[in-house]
Amino acid sequence: MFVQFESITMVKYLLIYRDSAEPRPQPSPEEMQGFLAMWGEWFEKCGSSIVDGGDGLLPTGRVLKPTGVVSDGPYVEAKEMIGGYSVIQAESYDAAVSIARDCPISKIGGAIEIRELAGYN
């Protein structure tokens, strides 16, 4: 006979940072440093919930349409542009949302899309 512990399965979520595509005044160096400090605090608070800090995306890009037509610029829809991503792990969507809530992106007016990774591979 064995005791089965109830185990909590952690699921991975992709956080997609969506900035407004509208031009915004450039942040000042002082504001940037403040923003960096907020990231540091967020990462520290999240601890092992952050699986991969991810990366930022440059504002340039190409779009390849199914017709084979290539156009310049990132794919912009609903006036939002993807500015970067991170991967976190959490027990549920609710938990993932509560982690994302403290992300500094929202403090500069960016939206965060939270998507569960399917784990196919």
């Binding site: 000042s28 160096p29 002082e30 540091g40």
Partner: peptide
């Protein structure tokens, strides 16, 4: 190192 280990006004002065 931790991001907040930067000296105060580092970005501004480096600018």
């Amino acid at each position: 190192t931790e991001p907040h280990a930067l000296v105060e006004h580092f970005f501004r002065h480096e600018y």
